[in-house]
Amino acid sequence: MSWQLTDDVETFIATAGDFLQSRPVENTNLLTIVDTVRRRGRNAYGPGVPIFGWWSTPGGRVAGVLVQTPPHPVIFSQLPPRAVPAAVEALGGHVLPGANLTADAVDGFVAGWRNRTGVRTHIVRRTRLYRLAALTPPPAPPPGRACYAGAGDQGLLEGWLLAFHDEIGERRPDDPRGMIEDRLDHGGVLLWEDGGHPVSMAMRSLPAAGTVRVQIVYTPPVHRGRGYAGAVTVAATREALDAGVRDVVLNTDLANPTSNALYQRLGFRPVEDRVIVEFTT
């Protein structure tokens, strides 16, 4: 049993692609990251050389993976217990800004990494992955309608994207324009308009192994409390279902009870919890 690392996304996909697609709900974030690097190049998320890794059993079966796209934390799939301390050793020659692991594995990896490198660690965010069971729209939707964002909305979307990251305390994307353009290319941004003016947005990932993730649901503070976020989430979810995907998922910040309650009312059910930890010298 051992970890193997590479900086080549095609080698990673050839080896670990079947593992990723075997659990597309739990691996939704990893599938999106790998697809984005494959389509947009190794620096799609920022400068620096990415790391791709897989944990193999003695029989050669892949049973866990990791991906790190600098300057972002390394993100792990669900892992067998033995893979956690072994990951500390395998990544020992790298400088990591942080780690994103399932709640049952985070303490073991973080303690091992702290002991090995001497870094300080602190929890940035606790998240929950939800999967749609049965879509349950609000009984009284807000006024307005959903529509696809277009090139003319680029500036608005960039501003909202940056505001979203600032609000949740997450690093801003290095290339917000490129990120928005990538979403617009596949109709991946829905707006809710009221009175002809955009008041909320929801983005969605490209389908991966029959799964789409609704993400970056944002309503400017001045428009909150009117049901726009729920309405645009329902619209994005319906759009994905109409396209024929098997599962629709989303991630939430567990520190935000409002969004967690909203998504459960809309028919999403918990799948797994994760913890994002930052490392500092």
Rank of each mutant, 00 (worst) to 15 (best):
residue 168 I to N: 03
residue 126 R to V: 07
residue 230 G to E: 04
residue 88 V to I: 11
residue 126 R to H: 05
residue 248 V to I: 03
residue 13 I to C: 10
residue 205 S to L: 05
residue 74 V to C: 08
residue 112 G to Q: 08
residue 23 R to P: 00
residue 95 V to I: 15
residue 40 R to Q: 15
residue 200 S to T: 11
residue 195 G to R: 07
residue 110 V to C: 03
residue 241 L to K: 08
residue 42 R to S: 14
residue 32 T to D: 13
residue 17 G to E: 02
residue 95 V to M: 12
residue 127 T to G: 11
residue 7 D to C: 08
residue 177 R to L: 13
residue 272 E to T: 14
residue 81 P to W: 01
residue 59 G to Y: 02
residue 78 Q to A: 15
residue 218 Y to C: 10
residue 213 R to L: 11
residue 171 R to Q: 14
residue 253 D to W: 00
residue 28 T to P: 00
residue 172 R to T: 06
residue 261 A to V: 13
residue 173 P to C: 05
residue 163 A to V: 11
residue 56 S to H: 06
residue 9 V to M: 00
residue 231 A to C: 08
residue 46 G to C: 04
residue 237 T to F: 04
residue 72 H to T: 07
residue 67 V to T: 09
residue 186 H to N: 01
residue 178 G to K: 03
residue 63 A to F: 12
residue 186 H to T: 00
residue 11 T to E: 12
residue 68 Q to E: 14
residue 108 G to R: 10
residue 73 P to L: 05
residue 116 R to C: 06
residue 76 F to L: 13
residue 234 V to F: 01
residue 6 T to E: 03
residue 236 A to V: 08
residue 48 G to E: 09
residue 213 R to Q: 14
residue 106 V to C: 09
residue 155 G to W: 09
residue 206 L to H: 08
residue 178 G to Q: 02
residue 155 G to N: 13
residue 13 I to F: 05
residue 245 V to S: 01
residue 77 S to Q: 12
residue 160 W to E: 11
residue 159 G to M: 13
residue 259 S to P: 09
residue 221 P to H: 14
residue 201 M to K: 08
residue 218 Y to H: 15
residue 278 E to N: 14
residue 248 V to L: 02
residue 281 T to M: 12
residue 201 M to F: 08
residue 123 I to H: 00
residue 77 S to I: 11
residue 133 A to G: 08
residue 169 G to K: 06
residue 260 N to T: 12
